[in-house]
Design a protein around this nucleic acid. Structure first.
Lengths: 109, 109
DNA sequence: TGATTTAATCGTAATATTGCAATAAATTAA
DNA sequence: TTAATTTATTGCAATATTACGATTAAATCA
């Protein structure tokens, strides 16, 4: 069906999955890394930085915006993007908690 | 096209995306959480625990196995699954490093 | 042996994702 | 105003993902 049965899972489980999902494409990983590297808004040139068509980059930016990981402000003819610190931290805590659930006794098999 | 252009990204970026991707479905999140909760192998009853059909669970288990996050050993007519600690740690470090790249000066916009 | 149990695989359907050309929209520059 | 620049949106094609019924495979039980 291609459609996840989100209703049978908890909000927490869906949150973890949704944050992970948006990081699940190398283009979005690269965009976020570049924004951190610049450490300020970047106006334009993301298309040159990543090697994909303008329409494709725009689509990935939209997904990052929808989840709130980045924000864009119009600056003349271009748009300036930067990381949204609050939502990055929110994601970071949710995913870190998930990743830190390990203890590894595993006394079997 | 539905096919990510992985070749234009670094191995590191693809690794991050691939680990994130496997966590990008609530069923797989739930499976991993259950394995941690049990903290030992679980033989059977994952289908009952998660509310999806047996074929669907088996498919998700296969993805987790392919990435090496879980391992299964045959035990009679059933299969016992548990977390693979080495690969969990590997994933944890890769994703944690990515999540910790923040510093948040952001002196613009 | 034959029946039962359990998990993997196959086949199929429906939806999602990725990518890009073409176009539209919005702003600036001449 | 017109042209140029930049980003968003639309439309489409191809592949991926999700889900599940049916079947198969493998081991155990009677």
């Amino acid at each position: 069906m291609g459609l996840a049965k989100t209703e049978i899972f908890s909000k927490s489980q869906n949150d973890i999955a949704n944050w992970a999902k948006v990081l699940g494409h190398p283009a979005r990983v690269a965009i976020l890394q570049h924004l951190f590297k610049i450490n300020s808004c970047i106006c334009g040139d993301l298309v040159l930085e990543i090697g994909l068509a303008q329409a494709t980059i725009s689509q990935h930016l939209k997904e990052l915006k929808t989840l709130g990981l980045i924000q864009g402000t119009v600056e003349g003819t271009s748009v300036c993007y930067c990381i949204n610190p609050e939502n990055w931290l929110k994601m970071k805590h949710i995913l870190t908690d998930f990743l830190n659930q390990d203890a590894f006794e595993n006394p079997c098999c």
